[in-house]
Measured scan of single mutants.
Amino acid sequence: MSGNGNAAATAEENSPKMRVIRVGTRKSQLARIQTDSVVATLKASYPGLQFEIIAMSTTGDKILDTALSKIGEKSLFTKELEHALEKNEVDLVVHSLKDLPTVLPPGFTIGAICKRENPHDAVVFHPKFVGKTLETLPEKSVVGTSSLRRAAQLQRKFPHLEFRSIRGNLNTRLRKLDEQQEFSAIILATAGLQRMGWHNRVGQILHPEECMYAVGQGALGVEVRAKDQDILDLVGVLHDPETLLRCIAERAFLRHLEGGCSVPVAVHTAMKDGQLYLTGGVWSLDGSDSIQETMQATIHVPAQHEDGPEDDPQLVGITARNIPRGPQLAAQNLGISLANLLLSKGAKNILDVARQLNDAH
């Protein structure tokens, strides 16, 4: 009898209710805020589980004197976190989706994509230029951005401005803007500013005609071990179906173009009346040469937790077992079709030249 009692006690200790789920994140304040929001949602869904947040620095956090596009290494903000995932030191990792490459290392998958916040870019102005827009900034004003995508589009749109690289986390960039006289304004992701509670610093939100956004911008991705079915089931509740389908289309477009950090590629997606609209573009580094096109596809946005595919093969690095396969494939095909259209119009040449120029500098 006593033996059975011990077995029952052991089973209770090993039951999922007692389990601590370890969540990996970057150390920056924004990353911690984003991770806290994901953990809060998981806690609400699984009140019996405990969650421990483990923060670590990544290569991208450490190399702050070089433009991201020049470092010449993929997975700048993800490699150390993936290493911890691989060694079973954490069970899942919360990322900004735009930091996750469209091809993940073997053994990993994006197990959830959370509801997207505003994906557009924002302009934050130096205190002396508050009330201005990019259009009304004085001639030769210097605007800071760490992104080739932003610089290429904005140089084309605002030729009277000069664009220079600015690195560091959000706090560091804002301090550089406010305390030094080098920059009249800087460009940042609206979602990051909003998550930090800095709505009052948003001086201008850039519309798609001015600057399309990065693939996955404004959404959070939760990376897990691809074979860890328990954790895949656990994080599945975080999937937002519309965000998922938009981001599958965007990531398929980028992957098929073979774009990345070192080339200016941008997108804009919208879901309306059962249609998914995808606009994508590529630019030369100075913005003088560009190709942009829009395509659409009829896609039914499923309700969360309709029964999805059981075999769960990944699409552009994403596993969404609780979302039907048909809409996911339709979104992926839309991204591939748009990429093929741009490639047929000469996108590869623009991107190759951009890559060579970026590598040469």
Results as ranks from 00 to 15, higher is better:
residue 104 L to I: 13
residue 293 E to S: 12
residue 105 P to I: 07
residue 40 A to F: 07
residue 190 T to D: 09
residue 158 F to S: 09
residue 300 H to T: 14
residue 69 S to A: 09
residue 199 H to Q: 06
residue 178 D to Q: 07
residue 111 G to D: 03
residue 287 G to W: 02
residue 220 L to N: 03
residue 76 L to S: 11
residue 131 G to Y: 11
residue 335 G to M: 04
residue 294 T to N: 14
residue 27 K to H: 10
residue 290 S to T: 04
residue 169 N to R: 10
residue 43 K to M: 08
residue 156 R to W: 11
residue 58 T to H: 01
residue 100 L to E: 13
residue 186 I to R: 03
residue 88 N to R: 11
residue 62 K to E: 04
residue 306 E to P: 07
residue 55 A to T: 08
residue 285 L to N: 15
residue 66 T to A: 13
residue 41 T to W: 08
residue 205 I to L: 14
residue 46 Y to H: 13
residue 50 Q to P: 15
residue 138 P to Y: 07
residue 106 P to R: 12
residue 329 L to M: 15
residue 86 E to K: 14
residue 196 M to Y: 12
residue 286 D to G: 07
residue 134 L to I: 08
residue 69 S to N: 12
residue 205 I to N: 09
residue 280 G to Y: 00
residue 88 N to T: 13
residue 244 L to P: 04
residue 138 P to E: 15
residue 282 V to R: 01
residue 63 I to V: 08
residue 155 Q to G: 10
residue 244 L to A: 03
residue 135 E to N: 07
residue 94 V to K: 03
residue 166 I to R: 04
residue 145 T to S: 11
residue 217 Q to R: 02
residue 275 Q to A: 00
residue 247 C to R: 02
residue 121 D to I: 02
residue 308 G to K: 01
residue 287 G to C: 05
residue 200 N to H: 14
residue 97 L to C: 07
residue 53 I to Y: 13
residue 246 R to M: 09
residue 148 L to G: 14
residue 288 S to P: 12
residue 266 A to P: 04
residue 161 L to M: 12
residue 74 K to Q: 15
residue 295 M to C: 03
residue 229 Q to F: 13
residue 302 P to W: 11
residue 195 R to F: 05
residue 275 Q to Y: 01
residue 231 I to V: 13
residue 120 H to E: 14
residue 204 Q to H: 12
residue 269 T to R: 00
residue 134 L to N: 01
residue 271 M to H: 15
residue 264 P to C: 01
residue 63 I to M: 13
residue 232 L to M: 12
residue 297 A to E: 05
residue 231 I to W: 07
residue 355 R to D: 15
residue 256 H to A: 15
residue 96 S to C: 07
residue 202 V to M: 12
residue 251 R to S: 07
residue 353 V to H: 15
residue 178 D to K: 04
residue 254 L to W: 15
residue 191 A to Y: 03
residue 169 N to H: 12
residue 195 R to N: 02
residue 207 H to T: 13
residue 122 A to V: 13
residue 231 I to M: 13
residue 305 H to D: 14
residue 166 I to V: 07
residue 147 S to C: 05
residue 163 F to C: 11
residue 171 N to P: 08
residue 311 D to F: 03
residue 214 A to S: 06
residue 32 R to M: 12
residue 142 V to P: 06
residue 140 K to F: 10
residue 191 A to W: 01
residue 95 H to W: 02
residue 248 I to P: 02
residue 316 V to T: 03
residue 95 H to E: 04
residue 173 R to I: 02
residue 122 A to G: 12
residue 278 L to F: 10
residue 98 K to V: 02
residue 69 S to Q: 12
residue 248 I to A: 03
residue 109 T to V: 14
residue 31 A to P: 00
residue 85 L to K: 03
residue 69 S to D: 09
residue 263 V to Q: 15
residue 92 L to F: 10
residue 293 E to G: 14
residue 135 E to C: 09
residue 243 T to R: 05
residue 195 R to Q: 04
residue 158 F to I: 12
residue 175 R to T: 09
residue 229 Q to D: 14
residue 71 I to L: 12
residue 261 C to N: 02
residue 151 A to S: 09
residue 68 L to K: 13
residue 85 L to A: 06
residue 162 E to D: 11
residue 229 Q to Y: 14
residue 210 E to T: 07
residue 211 C to V: 10
residue 263 V to A: 15
residue 35 T to F: 00
residue 71 I to T: 08
residue 52 E to C: 13
residue 217 Q to E: 04
residue 103 V to Y: 00
residue 117 E to Q: 11
residue 156 R to D: 07
residue 221 G to E: 00
residue 317 G to Y: 07
residue 82 E to Y: 05
